[in-house]
Design a binder for these strands. Structure first.
Lengths: 110, 110
DNA sequence: TGGCTATTTGGCTAAATTGCCAAGTAAATA
DNA sequence: TATTTACTTGGCAATTTAGCCAAATAGCCA
């Protein structure tokens, strides 16, 4: 595999990896609606603040969100607005699986 | 967070996680061009066959690929054709980061 | 049948991830 | 200044992941 292609694949993989966690997907969906401070997100997710803060730093590190400190709160927002359209395909994977699974159940007679 | 929403986020996260590895992204790109047997992919990636086989089983488990045994070879293909368009957004994240980084370097005078 | 070739699986170790608590920093307010 | 609120960071234990080798399975062919 060419070195350049490898670098590119690694860059893409890092972005996907940053998104590949339920709480981080939740954050992305919420930030798509409006910017939020850490405290809001923490309340919605229901985990420790430190945990949410670390999730946010993963997203920031990957270039998915931007932060903005105002007073003693830190507000996060999406850096790239397209992220949610992005999920059309993930959905079709899930639907394809669901269809196949129910066809299977039918075939087995359940 | 509602239980149903949580389940949905977990399902999406599983798909993304399966994609979030350079070798697996490589496999997805190659399978988008044409179906391939494990031996082809192994030669292209340059890792142990067992490693490639495990990557393929991750993709299969996530519902991203289908396998088809013919003779003593197993051919894999994408289950969902949209996966590559899917990357438009990942690219824009990467480009956004690159732009910002070079603006930073310019500001610092490098 | 015996020996190839292709693939998967088990087992192991090293490394990364997750989540909590505790401690530290920074801004607002009493 | 002392306290409170908001957030980040360090550190730890439990879990998961990645990659290799070795062994097992399955299909082909001499």
């Amino acid at each position: 595999m060419l070195e350049q292609r490898k670098d590119h694949l690694e860059a893409r993989a890092r972005v996907l990896k940053a998104m590949a966690h339920p709480s981080r997907l939740f954050i992305i969906e919420e930030l798509d609606k409006e910017e939020r401070c850490v405290c809001d997100l923490t309340a919605m997710i229901g985990a420790d603040v430190s945990t949410v803060s670390k999730h946010l730093s993963v997203l920031k590190q990957a270039g998915l969100v931007l932060d903005d400190k105002r007073g003693n709160q830190v507000f996060y927002r999406l850096r790239v607005p397209c992220i949610l359209n992005f999920f059309g395909c993930v959905e079709s994977v899930l639907e394809s699986r669901a269809r196949e699974h129910s066809a299977y159940l039918k075939a087995v007679g359940k």
